[in-house]
Design a protein around this nucleic acid. Structure first.
Lengths: 214, 214
DNA sequence: ACACCATATGTTAGTGAGTAACACTTCCCG
DNA sequence: CGGGAAGTGTTACTCACTAACATATGGTGT
């Protein structure tokens, strides 16, 4: 259904559905146009109709790609990675510590590859009052990932697990926000470290980067 | 309009504006009608116009009382109390512990007086997908209160403080949600205690009430 | 190769939240 | 008592989002 591969015509490598392809292409186009317009003229001032027009699709296609205007900014896909990283940490560690270390690893990678993207997106998020309030949703998906990472397969998480997951998601989000508020000047891994240390009631770690604040 | 109460006739104590009075009365009426209608026929199915009509005010008055339809459900005013309670705890305590204890005191009081109200409101909140996502906002106000409670007057909170505040708000919210999911059967103070203990990496406390789960 | 079907898209028309502008009433204060 | 301030209502508007139906297009079975 997804992969049909009528290989008789085209002997070359990637042979996914043209349909799915176009869909993805549309989605990407819409997102790109949207983010550009948001940056250029502001979020509120940009209408869905305009985005659709400039992306060369209809109004409806927009909503078929993104469930809402906000989703264009909020969409995020680091969560599955984080879940896996948490699960792979030893269960002997305290839940908060597992998340702490998993996050350090995961975000460390993101930090290397997609630093700029993450920064721009977060700044945009914070600059739009309507979205700022909704960081919680963003957070909710991280929370779920943490929860799943902490809970053995097939079990239901207890209140404690759910609370720890939610709390860590909130703490992490705070670190990312603080980082974006410095315009990316601060060292994100270091901020994350400090935040989790504070949560666990540990003394502040020595900074990895020489100058976090001048 | 509804009640005229011109204060020259009444020499008694509370001498607030009649205007402000009526405003409050309007606000209360709107909120009451809204919550009733939400419960009766669902949140989505209830329009602002209908609420306004049944409350005997205009469409506009609704929005002058509540910035949005959602605010009717989300509005909450425990926060100033929590801020004060936190501030009054000794600074020698760890931040998480300060919030933990302050919350135990504060929510303990609410639990006595407004248990039913809190329960209904939370249940409503969870039952409405559109609002469920926005618990984050609700949380944001608690976070701010925690932040302020932890920060000495005139200072700016650091990342650590902000993170701890956000994390505790998330944890608290989880406890309240879990409580409402049991239909109020569970003991909220006990849940809060467990949640904060988990956060601090302490062993689970013995329950205060004999039977939390049968 | 041809017909069939599923799926993505566009068109149109509608609902409902939230806002702006202006006129009107009502209370407060000098 | 008169003028200003603040609250309210009316109307008209924008815009996110949805439903229904028509249409195109690529994939599939024969």
């Amino acid at each position: 259904m997804l992969v049909s591969n009528t290989s008789r015509d085209r002997p070359d490598g990637d042979r996914v559905n043209d349909k799915a392809r176009t869909r993805e292409r549309n989605r990407a186009a819409v997102q790109e146009v949207a983010l550009r317009l948001f940056a250029e003229q502001g979020y509120e001032a940009t209408t869905v109709a305009q985005i659709a027009r400039e992306a060369g699709v209809s109004h409806m296609t927009f909503f078929r790609c993104f469930p809402s205007k906000e989703a264009v900014v909020l969409d995020d896909d680091y969560d599955p990675m984080l879940e896996e990283l948490i699960r792979s940490r030893p269960v002997t560690e305290e839940p908060v510590e597992r998340i702490h270390r998993a996050t350090m690893t995961g975000l460390g990678q993101v930090y290397e590859h997609a630093r700029e993207t993450l920064l721009r997106r977060t700044e945009l998020l914070l600059s739009i009052p309507g979205l700022r309030a909704r960081i919680g949703e963003n957070l909710a998906s991280a929370r779920t990932a943490f929860e799943r990472g902490l809970t053995p397969e097939g079990e239901e998480p207890g209140v404690e697990t759910r609370a720890v997951a939610a709390a860590c998601a909130a703490a992490l989000s705070t670190a990312v926000i603080a980082w974006s508020e410095t315009g990316g000047e601060a060292d994100l891994p270091d901020l994350i470290d400090r935040v989790f240390h504070a949560l666990r009631g540990l003394p502040a770690p020595e900074p990895l980067s020489p100058e976090v604040r001048p």
